[in-house]
């Protein structure tokens, strides 16, 4: 592990760059997927086309996508924007189906009672549907997070620095420990973000255990929890 001793500063620097690239793409994917998925859920007629488009995007190999995006957007090849846009496309494609499923899990009775209580469309979305779809949504976001953190590495092939740089540099120099550190740090970052999401999920769904607890007690089982 001589390499690690000599290059620890660089590893830290690349980890931070990797983290920011991944976070930007993950956040953009979630926002975009919720918006698109919402449309697909509300209008069943466009649902199939949207889901089909999502699988088309997911089927595009990453390397050509990195070359085509700059041609389309007019940004330099090695600009972080290129990578973030590419990863956002993949992330959105991966997540959109889950978003539709997530909204479908919201109980129709709950939705009806909210409408009866006078919730408008906006309030219904922000205060009822979105919070209640968090558990399913979160499972999808976790998959996107882990896959995005892994995919950031391919940016190294076109000169966008991240932990992926350790993979290509280690390969060129024939330093196996450098590649290994790159792989392990990428995995650690993915699992750390995944853990953070699980914690965030607990925070956002404190209503859930309460619901289960009540559901288990015979008397409370018929109670409707909003």
């Amino acid at each position: 592990m001589t390499w690690l001793e000599n290059n620890s500063d660089w590893v830290v620097e690349l980890t931070i760059q990797h983290l920011f690239l991944a976070l930007a793409a993950i956040v953009a994917s979630v926002v975009l997927a919720v918006a698109v998925g919402r449309v697909a859920y509300v209008r069943p007629r466009v649902r199939q086309p949207i889901l089909a488009a999502a699988s088309v995007v997911y089927a595009i190999p990453a390397l050509p996508l990195l070359i085509v995006i700059p041609l389309v957007l007019g940004v330099p090849l090695r600009s972080p924007t290129t990578l973030v846009v590419a990863l956002t496309l993949y992330g959105t494609a991966l997540l959109v189906g889950t978003v539709v499923d997530a909204f479908s899990t919201v109980d129709a009775g709950v939705r009806d009672s909210a409408v009866a209580m006078g919730y408008g469309r906006q309030a219904l979305f922000w205060r009822v549907e979105l919070p209640l779809s968090v558990p399913v949504l979160l499972s999808g976001i976790r998959v996107v997070t882990v896959s995005t953190v892994g995919l950031v590495t391919i940016g190294a092939l076109v000169g966008i620095s991240s932990l992926g740089t350790l993979l290509t540099d280690g390969f060129q120099r024939g330093i196996t420990s450098e590649i290994l550190i790159g792989v392990l740090m990428t995995m650690a970052l993915a699992l750390a973000l995944d853990g953070a999401l699980v914690a965030l999920g607990r925070l956002l769904t404190r209503w859930q255990p309460r619901r289960r607890r009540r559901a288990r007690t015979p008397l409370g089982s018929t109670e409707v929890i909003v």
């Binding site: 882990v146 992926g164 790159g182 699992l191």
Partner: peptide, 15 residues
């Protein structure tokens, strides 16, 4: 499986 999913394919391939 989560850990395997987190392995960057490029890194695994080079190794």
């Amino acid at each position: 499986a989560g850990a395997v999913r987190a392995i960057p394919t490029l890194g695994l391939l080079t190794l």
